[in-house]
């Protein structure tokens, strides 16, 4: 009966067959063919992959995406931990804070895009007006840096609460006895955090880092709504690039770039997963 586990996994696998496995096979199939609307697809082997890897637009989107995702992790994770540390540990404030932090997570991506447009619209938006006080003319439609930073801060605004909620869950699981022991040993606040809190947060941080990395790699609606990926291609992230190719029915290219894209996400996630599972393992035991 060692393999009865499979019996329980069957429903999930059945649904995933329709929603993941078959579509993925279709993508791989596309990626190996030259597809042109109206004619029969011809098998071309890895030519589409070569084309994608030689395409400077794809490579620029990839680099931009990596810079963005790493930046997101570097800002959201420490910030999330800080916020979690500031939240009340018990009392009526807990439920209120959890609900308040949960609300931004429930705003659809395109509403976030709309908020960004309302806030940054030239002439009467709040943010350009604010920067005008310092004689800086802020314009997402013209300045690539402004546009990139707007998307970046938007993501930080939208998703840091998720990291904070996860860390809060991790903090709640640390027994008070650990802190008392640290106090008796005369550990400083920083040392308590470094040697008691942080190692105990590892498992939730793994989830937080992986979720944020995967999801920031998928960013689509916000840049689409803010500037349509512009100015130039300053906010054309991978998802946007691939979706454009698919929409223009360039399926061979879209399939190949999708597969490379998925491969990169999986490799990075696997590295994070391994690193975070192994680093500092000795400290907790």
């Amino acid at each position: 009966m060692k393999n009865r586990g499979w019996l329980f996994v069957i429903p999930a696998l059945a649904v995933l067959a329709i929603s993941a496995f078959i579509p993925l096979m279709t993508v791989i199939n596309y990626s190996l063919h030259y597809i042109f609307a109206g004619s029969t697809p011809t098998f071309v082997g890895f030519e589409n992959y070569v084309e994608v890897l030689r395409d400077s637009a794809f490579l620029r989107a990839l680099v931009r995406q990596l810079v963005f995702s790493m930046g997101i992790l570097a800002v959201e994770v420490p910030l999330g931990i800080c916020i979690a540390l500031c939240l009340p540990k018990r009392g009526p404030g807990v439920a209120v804070c959890l609900v308040l932090l949960g609300i931004p997570l429930l705003i659809p991506f395109n509403v976030v895009g709309i908020i960004a447009r309302v806030l940054t619209q030239s002439a009467v938006g709040v943010i350009p007006e604010f920067f005008a006080l310092f004689n800086y003319s802020f314009n997402v439609a013209k300045d690539p840096v402004d546009a990139f930073m707007t998307i970046f801060l938007l993501d930080v605004w939208h998703w840091t609460p998720l990291v904070a909620l996860l860390c809060y869950a991790g903090l709640q699981a640390i027994p008070d006895a650990y802190y008392q022991a640290a106090r008796i040993d005369g550990a400083s606040a920083w040392k308590t955090f470094r040697y008691v809190t942080l190692p105990k947060l590892r498992s939730v941080l793994i989830i937080g880092v992986l979720l944020r990395f995967m999801d920031s790699f998928k960013i689509y609606a916000e840049p689409l709504l803010l500037t349509g990926g512009g100015p130039g291609d300053a906010t054309t992230f991978l998802s946007l690039h691939v979706a454009r190719k698919a929409e223009s029915y360039n399926l061979g290219y879209a399939g190949a770039s999708s597969f490379i894209y998925l491969f990169i996400v999986i490799v990075f996630s696997y590295i994070f997963f391994q690193l975070m599972t192994h680093i500092g393992k000795g400290e907790t035991k």
Binding site: A20, P23, V27, Y30, K218, Y220, S239
Partner: peptide, 21 residues
């Protein structure tokens, strides 16, 4: 781990296959 990789799959990748399926 394979199940988790589905979580990673960017939706843009699956747009066309889903439509066809």
């Amino acid at each position: 781990f394979w199940l988790l990789t589905n979580r990673m799959a960017p939706a843009a990748v699956f747009m066309v296959p889903f439509t066809e399926l």
